[in-house]
Design a protein around this nucleic acid. Structure first.
Lengths: 147, 147
DNA sequence: ATGCAAATGCGAACTATTCTCAAATACATC
DNA sequence: GATGTATTTGAGAATAGTTCGCATTTGCAT
């Protein structure tokens, strides 16, 4: 994963915002993470590198990065949000209502549909997110066995 | 909008749950609503018909209906969730990061893509939801004027 | 180098949502 | 139609994710 900081800095500058060590840290942590992290994950990892990082700053940073289109906010469960860097490979999530498992799906089909819709509605898309909720194969099998 | 209660009752029974006046009420309110409602909206409207309805029951009912695939939970903003009946015309939402406006989009393109993905991953889709966040035409225009 | 708006840290505050538990009730069975 | 029981409900307390307030620090334009 290449360094995302310079790109993020450009986005911030565009919005009249500053790049700070804390924001750099959050972006770094998100680029090094494989999947999606929640705010506490980011906070804990951040503290290992900078003991002065506060949770409020993590939240503020995530919101700003979200508005800048750098970060995508996911609603995978009802506990709290998860965040991931918003790469252009817009992918979707299959969320099992029974076991909560999250399956990631790369989908160019969705990306293309999103593109079309954006143009149609004169809407500049910063981030696309598809949630398909339902029941995974495992849970369906278990369900059938108890019938 | 036809009566959604019998259908919902079938879904509930399948899950080994009971139909109650409160659940009927929630389904009724959602079918009569044009767009998406939040839990408090539903609670307030429900109280007008049944003064004994409690907010906890509204939340419980919404979660059960969500698991049954009757209701879809939306994450339009960070304040709280919104809910709507999950009709098969899976539509998407364009959410403006600047003014918060929500534009509803009917999209068969997305529905078809969802179908394909579901089959590919052996996942029974109960509900599909697409969120495209970005900037609407109005906000982009305003933004340009202040540059 | 300087000034100031923007950002931070800390803890308190807020608020959406869930939990607890006794009382009420849907509904399968008789 | 009556009965028994597991489910559901209401009310308020509890929880937890997220934001706020404000004094202090700091990025960065000049």
């Amino acid at each position: 994963m290449e360094d995302q900081v310079p790109l993020s800095e450009r986005y911030l500058k565009t919005m009249g915002r500053r790049m700070t060590p804390q924001r750099r840290l959050v972006v770094d942590i998100l680029s090094q993470a494989e999947g999606h992290l929640d705010a506490t994950d980011i906070y804990e990892r951040g503290r290992r590198q900078d003991a002065r990082l506060s949770l409020a700053t993590v939240y503020r940073t995530l919101n700003i990065l979200k508005e800048a289109g750098v970060v995508r906010e996911l609603h995978l469960d009802d506990e709290h949000h998860h965040y991931e860097l918003d790469h252009q490979d817009k992918h979707s999530h299959l969320i099992c209502l029974s076991c909560g498992r999250v399956i990631e799906v790369d989908s160019t089909a969705f990306a293309e549909a999103a593109e079309t819709i954006g143009q149609l509605y004169d809407f500049r898309i910063a981030s696309a997110h598809v949630e398909l909720t339902g029941y995974c194969a495992d849970c369906r099998r278990k369900q059938e066995m108890t019938d």
